[in-house]
Nucleic acid binder design. Structure first.
Length: 264
DNA sequence: ATGGCGTACACCGTACGA
C-alpha cells in the first residue's frame, strides 16, 4: 500500500487538490494536518464518495488532523485514538487508528501535527517540547503492544542542516534549535526508524516552502514533514519521497506530501 | 525590525503559521 502524510492547510480550501492528488498519486492511507475545521463541517461525504473512509478530530480555525483510507485496499479501520492519551490538551493535534488490508494484515497509523513553537524561548516553544515529551511517553507504550507502527506528520522540526535551504540563517532558531532536534531524536530512540534515512535523496529536497517571495520557485524550503516506522517495518518500506506535484498547483498548500510504499 | 502570503473569523483588522 502507498502511505503518506500531508499538511493541507485547510481541508475545505484544499479539497479539490486533495481529491485529485489521492487519485493521481494512488494513495491508500494518508494522515492530514491543519484541517482547520470542526468535525461537523469536515467534508466526510465528499471523501466517502471518492472511496475513502476517514477518522478525524478538529477545532475551529486552527490545527485539526485526519486519517483517510481507501476502501478498496483498506478493509477496516479500528481502535481510533484522538489526541495523546493521558495528556490534557485543548488543541487537536493527533489521530491514530489500526488499519487492516484485504489480506488481514494490520498496521497502526498515527498522524500528528506537532506545535510550531513560534520562537525559541516563548510559551509556545515550551509547549512544543512538553507536547513532544508526552507524545514520546505514549509512543513507548504503543510500541510495547507489538503492533507495527507508522508515525507521520508535520513535525515542525528540520532534523539536520541539510533540511534547511539557509542553515546559517536558521541556526538555533525555531524548527532547527538544539532542544527541538534532541527531542526529535529522543522520540526516534524509543524504537522508530526515520524512513527518509532508508534511502538516498538529492540535496535540497524539502517539504515546506514559504508562500512569500516565491519560496517554492526558488526552492527556499525546509524539510519538516516526516514518516517514521517501527523497526520491524523498516525493510518493508520503499520509494520514500516528497511529492512536489500539488505544491505547484494553483493556490496550493504551503506543504508538499511525503509518500512511501509499504508491503505488509 | 518589518513584511512578504494564505487561511480563518469576523470586522472592515487580528491571530497564526514556519
Amino acid at each position: 500500500m502507498r502511505i503518506a502524510t500531508w499538511n493541507v492547510n485547510s481541508i475545505k480550501v484544499r479539497l479539490p487538490h486533495l481529491l485529485s492528488w489521492l487519485d493521481e498519486a494512488k494513495i491508500d492511507a494518508v494522515v492530514l494536518q491543519e484541517t482547520k475545521t470542526v468535525d461537523e463541517a469536515f467534508p466526510l461525504k465528499a471523501l466517502q464518495e471518492a472511496g475513502f473512509d476517514a477518522v478525524f478530530v478538529g477545532q475551529k480555525a486552527y490545527n485539526g488532523v485526519a486519517l483517510l483510507t481507501r476502501r478498496s485496499t483498506i478493509s477496516s479501520v479500528t481502535d481510533p485514538v484522538y489526541n495523546i492519551p493521558g495528556y490534557d490538551d485543548e488543541q487537536k493535534r493527533l489521530v491514530a487508528a489500526t488499519i487492516t488490508d484485504r489480506e488481514g494484515k494490520s498496521v497502526r497509523f498515527i498522524g500528528a501535527y506537532f506545535p510550531n513553537g513560534q520562537e525559541v524561548g516563548t510559551n509556545k516553544y515550551w509547549y512544543k517540547l512538553e507536547w513532544m515529551a508526552a507524545l514520546t511517553y505514549w509512543l513507548k507504550a504503543e510500541l510495547a503492544r507489538d503492533i507495527p507502527l507508522l508515525l507521520g506528520g508535520d513535525f515542525n522540526i528540520a532534523p539536520s542542516d541539510e533540511d534547511l535551504w539557509d542553515p546559517i540563517g536558521w541556526r538555533g532558531r525555531i524548527l532547527a534549535s538544539a532542544p527541538e532536534r534532541e527531542a526529535f531524536f529522543r522520540l526516534l530512540s524509543v524504537g522508530f526508524i526515520d524512513t527518509w534515512s532508508l534511502e538516498l535523496h538529492a540535496p535540497g529536497t524539502f517539504s515546506w516552502w514559504d508562500y512569500r517571495q516565491s519560496g517554492f520557485e526558488q526552492n527556499h524550503g525546509v524539510r519538516i514533514d516526516h514518516l517514521l516506522c517501527s523497526k520491524s517495518l523498516s525493510d518493508r518500506i520503499h520509494n520514500v519521497h516528497v511529492d512536489v506535484t500539488p505544491r505547484g498547483w494553483d493556490k496550493p498548500s504551503d506543504h508538499a506530501p511525503v509518500v512511501a510504499d509499504l508491503s505488509l
